[in-house]
Amino acid sequence: MSGFALEGIDMTRRYGGFVAVDKVSIALVPGEIRGLIGPNGAGKSTLMDALCGRGGGTTVGTVRFQGRDISGLSARARRRVGLARSFQKTNIFADLEVREQISLAASAAETDNTEEVIKALGLSALADRRAADISYGDQRRLDLALALVGKPSVLLLDEPAAGLSISESLVLARLLRELATSWGVTVLIVEHDMDVIFSISDRITVLHLGKILADGPGEEIRANQEVVRAYLGTSIT
C-alpha cells in the first residue's frame, strides 16, 4: 500500500487540441499542506478538477487515494471516500442558516460531524444566522466548513482566501494549519496570496504552462530563479 494520501500520476487534461495539464505527477504525504501556485492559466484549478473527477475535457492519468486507484470513480464517489473540494466561488445558500446548510451537507455524508465543524471553524455564534447576513469572511469559513463535513482526509482548496483582507487571510491560514494538525487532514491549496502560501505550506509545487516548473520547500521556491521569472516577479523576502 502507498504511503501517500493522494497521488496524481502523469495527469493530463485536454480540451480538444488544447493541453491544459501535461503529464503532471504530484504526491501528498498524510497531514501535509501543499501549496500549488503559478500564473493565471497555468493549470492549477484544472489539475484539482482532474484529481477530484470534475470538469470537462479528456483526462488521462491515474489518481490514487491512500493507495487505492480511484481514477474510475465519479466526483461524488471520490467525495464519499474522503476527497473533498472547495471552489473559488462560495457554494453557500444565502437564505439558509449556517447550521441548517452544514447539517444538510452532512446528511449526504457517512459521518455527521456538523457540530464539530461549526466549532472548529469558529461559527458557533453565527450558527442560527442566515448566510446572507454574515460577513464575507465568515461566508468563506462557512464554505470551508461545508467541505469539511464528513471529515474528509484530503481537502483540495481553490483560493479559499479570495476576496479576504490581509488580516482575514492570515487568520484563515492559521485555521488551516490547526485543522491539518488536529484533524490530520491533508491539504492541497491553490492561492494567489503568497503570504498565505508561504506561511502554511510544508511544500510548494509551481505550475507553468500546464507542467511542473518547480517543487520543494518554500525556501527553495523563493530562491528559484525560474520561478521568480515565470511567476513571482521578484524574490519574496
Rank of each mutant, 00 (worst) to 15 (best):
D69Q: 09
D69A: 07
D69I: 09
D69V: 05
I70H: 08
I70P: 07
I70V: 15
S71Y: 11
S71P: 08
S71I: 11
S71H: 10
S71Q: 10
G72C: 14
L73M: 15
L73I: 07
L73E: 13
L73R: 11
L73G: 05
L73A: 07
L73H: 10
L73S: 04
L73N: 02
S74R: 05
S74H: 08
S74P: 04
A75K: 07
A75I: 09
R76W: 12
R76V: 09
R76F: 14
A77R: 15
A77C: 09
A77Y: 11
A77V: 12
R78V: 06
R78M: 08
R78H: 10
R79Q: 02
R79D: 06
R79L: 15
R79A: 15
R79V: 13
R79P: 01
R80P: 00
R80A: 14
R80V: 10
R80N: 12
V81K: 02
V81A: 08
V81E: 14
G82P: 10
G82E: 14
G82W: 15
G82R: 13
L83Q: 01
L83V: 14
L83M: 15
A84R: 01
A84W: 09
A84E: 05
R85W: 11
R85G: 03
R85Y: 04
R85F: 09
R85D: 07
S86T: 15
S86C: 10
S86R: 03
S86I: 08
S86A: 09
F87N: 01
F87V: 02
F87G: 01
Q88D: 05
Q88C: 08
Q88P: 05
Q88L: 10
Q88E: 06
K89T: 14
K89G: 04
K89P: 00
T90Q: 05
T90N: 09
T90R: 02
T90G: 00
T90D: 05
T90A: 12
N91R: 14
N91L: 13
I92S: 08
I92A: 13
F93I: 10
F93S: 01
A94K: 14
A94G: 11
A94L: 15
D95W: 12
D95H: 13
D95K: 10
D95T: 12
L96T: 01
E97K: 11
E97F: 00
E97H: 00
V98E: 10
V98W: 10
V98F: 12
V98C: 09
V98G: 05
R99L: 06
R99M: 03
R99S: 04
E100W: 01
E100S: 03
E100M: 02
Q101S: 06
Q101K: 03
Q101P: 05
I102M: 14
I102C: 07
I102H: 08
